[in-house]
Amino acid sequence: MNDTLVTVVGNVATSVEYRETPTGGVARFRFAATARRWDRERSVWTDGPTSFYTVSAWRQLAANLAASVAVGEPLVVHGRLRVREEAPGDGQGGQRRTFVDIDALAVGHDLARGTSAFRRGGKRGPEQAMTEGPEGVPMRAPEPVGT
Rank of each mutant, 00 (worst) to 15 (best):
T50W: 03
Q95C: 06
M130Q: 13
G72S: 08
R80S: 11
F29K: 10
G122H: 07
T50D: 08
T46Q: 14
S116D: 04
R119I: 15
F99T: 04
G121K: 14
L61F: 08
A141S: 13
P142A: 12
D47W: 02
G93Q: 04
A67R: 08
G48M: 02
A33R: 05
T98H: 03
K123T: 03
E17M: 08
F31S: 10
T4E: 05
D101T: 00
A57M: 04
A35P: 07
V100A: 07
D39W: 04
A106Q: 04
T21S: 14
A104K: 02
L65E: 01
V77M: 14
W58V: 05
T23M: 15
V16Q: 08
T34Q: 10
P22N: 07
E17C: 08
G48S: 06
V16I: 12
T98I: 10
F31E: 02
V12A: 15
V69T: 05
R82D: 05
A117T: 13
P142C: 11
G91K: 07
Q128C: 05
V44L: 15
P49I: 04
A66E: 02
L61M: 12
A112H: 11
T46R: 15
A63H: 03
W45A: 09
G146D: 01
E17K: 06
G25I: 00
A141I: 02
E41W: 11
L5E: 06
S68V: 04
V69K: 10
D103K: 10
G114M: 13
S68Q: 06
D39H: 03
L65N: 11
V76D: 00
A106F: 08
T14Y: 13
A33W: 02
Q128P: 01
G125A: 09
R30F: 09
V6G: 13
Q128G: 05
A104I: 01
T14W: 09
V83T: 11
A27D: 01
V12S: 13
R28W: 00
V76I: 07
G25N: 00
Y18F: 14
F99M: 07
S43L: 10
A67E: 00
N2L: 14
E17L: 10
P22E: 09
L5V: 15
V145A: 15
V8M: 15
T147P: 10
F52I: 03
R124P: 00
V76W: 03
F31W: 06
H109N: 01
